[in-house]
Design a protein around this nucleic acid. Structure first.
Lengths: 304, 304
DNA sequence: GCGGAGCATAGAATAATCCAATACAAAACC
DNA sequence: GGTTTTGTATTGGATTATTCTATGCTCCGC
């Protein structure tokens, strides 16, 4: 337990610099006895006489006072730096931002967003991490992330989320599949077909819900937590898939051709949100980033 | 003016380390609400939310809290270092000691004392300075010296002094001077002789006072503030001198032989003291040094 | 001496800090 | 699903710091 206070050190340093208790007090805008008492208490608590009192002509630091105050000066300077930084953290757009992203969203959106934001605010550093929905919830709750980019599916009540974009699910087919001839596909038509399911929460529950809403009980032939594996399996003709994320290009990793078709039914959209912990007071930087993301997705929408 | 306190930072760091307000409070031996209130206030004052509260399972640092607390940790560590040092300064025998010495005493005593003390307390550093009596008074009063080695002549009332040694004055003559045949010389015998006066305060007044007490009004042929110059002038046969300091050996710098004779009269002794500013509370180190000096001079006396 | 300069002290008001007790919310347990 | 457990926030009251104004005290310079 520390026995002295930063206030006492500030006063003592000002006294040393000005050679006067009264002038130091004036510099801080406090009464002279406040400073007088503060240094008296400081001396008592560190057990050293810091100042020599010259009646009617101020004070000067004692030898041990000089040694003490030299180190105290470092301490106070460090404290002032910290204060300046926190002042900046409240208002300035700089510092570090810890962002989490749902795995399948990360490659599609994170690079653009981060690069665009850094172009505008070059002093901002990013810590970026991708993970499952649960991992992100956990990250927000224990302070690993400031904000997280994810789907608003099964969002816990302790999180806040600003909606960034709505995406409709689509059907992914092997290029040679008979249904490919249709521009739009009704979910009912998939009833007998084998499904390759993207098996990662919350995507899994979302896709199954969409199919169930159309009265389809899918026959799950394969499932994988990896988007690219799912696309590869579909490319190999092992079934269809229902997905939201649309990677650029219509080929799987192994080169097999894929076809993307809209769904004829009315479906529940997948909503991409930027989530944060409700009880968390956001920094100015976080607010600005949130705002940037909203505008970024608006621009994307206008373009398509 | 700093808006947060070291106490708040200490509490916040302990909370972060233990992940719990209650355990942090226990570690400091204070009640849990004290810590709770302290971090609430700290958050208000720095304008950042530092912790995320998990009901029923403690708290964890928020992302901006992690960044803030990392720097706060430096600050508190520095503050603790400073406290440890001041604790040591009060009790331990280490640190720096600023010693002043009267010019003519310095070469005779300072090297031995400093070397002897450092042999016993190797962690003590010395800042050493020699000067005139006035310079030393000034140095004590404005904190340039912790202690000063000087003659207790015309000692101002605002100084304290512990007596180290009494030295009788002696007569210095050229080796071939007729009076050299005598073992002791009465001051009256010097009445007509030219005096080479060590002209530095307070030696000057002291020597003149000793002569005046014996009824001698000296004929001052030469004077110099340098002891070695005085000895040189006496060696050249330009007069006698009355001195206290007895350098080792009976030759001047230029090799001329000198003779030292006691004074037959009862004379006022020169008292060497270690002076300090009365209003100054001494450090433990200063007290130990003072004590060492007393014992050192006692040993010298026993040896002669 | 006597006035001026400047720190220390006294006393009162205000603010911070502390404690004990309690309210409260989520989690865990049955 | 309710009940207990765990851990933080709040409340109210006592203690202690900090601050103020006013005054005392001591040395300096004239």
């Amino acid at each position: 337990m520390l026995r002295y206070t930063l206030r006492q050190l500030e006063y003592a340093l000002a006294v040393q610099e000005r050679g006067s208790v009264a002038r130091a007090a004036a510099a801080f805008g406090v009464a002279q006895p406040s400073v007088s008492a503060a240094i008296a208490k400081l001396e008592e608590q560190v057990g050293l006489q810091l100042f020599i009192r010259h009646h009617a002509q101020g004070v000067t630091a004692a030898p041990q006072g000089v040694r003490f105050l030299a180190e105290a000066r470092n301490l106070v300077a460090l404290a002032q730096d910290l204060q300046r930084e926190t002042d900046a953290a409240g208002t300035a757009i700089e510092g570090t931002l810890a962002i989490g992203s749902f795995m399948t969203l990360a490659p599609a959106f994170a690079p653009q967003i981060i690069a665009g934001f850094r172009a505008q605010y070059p002093n901002v550093k990013f810590r970026f991490e991708e993970g499952t929905q649960e991992h992100l919830f956990d990250g927000l709750r224990n302070g690993r992330h400031d904000l997280a980019l994810l789907y608003s599916v099964d969002l816990p009540a302790d999180l806040d989320a600003v909606s960034l974009a709505h995406f409709s699910p689509h059907i992914l087919l092997p290029a040679h599949h008979p249904l490919c001839k249709r521009r739009k596909i009704a979910l009912g038509e998939l009833a007998g077909e084998p499904l390759v399911l993207l098996d990662v929460m919350p995507s899994r529950t979302y896709f199954l819900r969409v199919l169930a809403a159309a009265g389809v009980t899918p026959e799950i032939a394969f499932s994988s937590p990896s988007l690219e594996v799912v696309r590869g399996l579909v490319g190999q003709g092992l079934g269809y898939s229902i997905l939201i994320t649309r990677p650029h290009g219509d080929h799987a990793y192994d080169g097999e051709a894929l076809a993307i078709r809209d769904i004829a039914d009315e479906t529940e959209d997948g909503v991409i949100v930027l989530a944060s912990l409700r009880q968390m007071r956001k920094t100015r930087l976080a607010i600005v980033f949130e705002d940037y993301c909203v505008r970024h997705f608006e621009k994307l929408k206008g373009r398509s």
